[in-house]
Design a protein around this nucleic acid. Structure first.
Lengths: 146, 146
DNA sequence: ATAATTGCAAAGTCTTTGCAGTTTG
DNA sequence: CAAACTGCAAAGACTTTGCAATTAT
């Protein structure tokens, strides 16, 4: 239920900003909202949507994502190598990526208290936790490797 | 003085690992060691070195950087969009990148205490501070923008 | 000598752009 | 109908790979 509402909210917002709601855009937004980890790359999104919309162009996906970012409902993060991941805004968490196996852990915002305070005090820098990409080794790789 | 020693240390290590020390490699290592912010992209490195070594190929730079990473003296970090930055290991700091103007702030390791502890406790995840790329807004852009 | 490195060119990945045709509001 | 969206193809940024010629050890 909540998902359906969210979908409509996003599309409505798009319309209000002078954008148009098309079958493709509806499908893109739905796919993002339903993506398992709540984050997905443009390429994965394209591949997935091609199953039902065979001639969807990558450029269309990128432009739709841009449009969503511009109205502020979507954000992207660069998780180390490879493609950026997109996720809806308001999900206040950072990503921690294992540089060995690529596993992604979502880190709740409240762990950033100290860092946020220190950076603001020392550098006047305001961190955006949802953009943050931490890097390190996950449990599995720590125990397996050494 | 210290820079010269460091250069020779690196080159010696390279030799010990079966690598060869060439004019090009010496120039690459020197340029990294002398790079103003202690981090530089492969492309910037190539452009800079081309001034004195006109037909240095990008691939040579990339391969040299790879070789240095493999012997453990160099690391790279993806700072959001664009090219990865390389820096010598042992510089225990993270980077905070302003997503408005691209400015980079170096964040000393000790600010990561809480985050490191929490991530280890909650997820078993071990963060590598020197790989971390924080994102947010720098002082200038905070005051200028809004 | 022989194994590593080099330059060049081609290819690969992710993303952006130009354009003519189609669709939405 | 006008403005926005679409697919396609081409280009762009960054990086990797193959190969024959060169060079360090």
């Amino acid at each position: 239920m909540r998902t359906i509402n969210r979908l409509d909210q996003v599309l409505e917002l798009l319309r209000r900003h002078g954008g148009r709601v098309t079958t493709t855009r509806r499908a893109v937004v739905r796919a993002i909202l339903e993506s398992p980890e709540h984050h997905i790359t443009a390429i994965a999104l394209t591949d997935q949507l091609r199953l039902t919309h065979p001639d969807l162009a990558p450029s269309t996906v990128y432009r739709t994502l841009d449009a969503l970012c511009e109205i502020g409902v979507l954000e992207h993060t660069h998780l180390g190598h490879g493609a950026a991941v997109f996720h809806m805004t308001g999900e206040r968490h950072a990503h921690a990526v294992c540089h060995v196996c690529g596993a992604v852990v979502q880190v709740p915002d409240h762990h950033f208290g100290e860092l946020r305070r220190d950076l603001a005090a020392e550098f006047g820098f305001e961190i955006a936790p949802e953009h943050v990409a931490l890097s390190g080794r996950c449990v599995r790789c720590r125990t397996t490797e050494s």
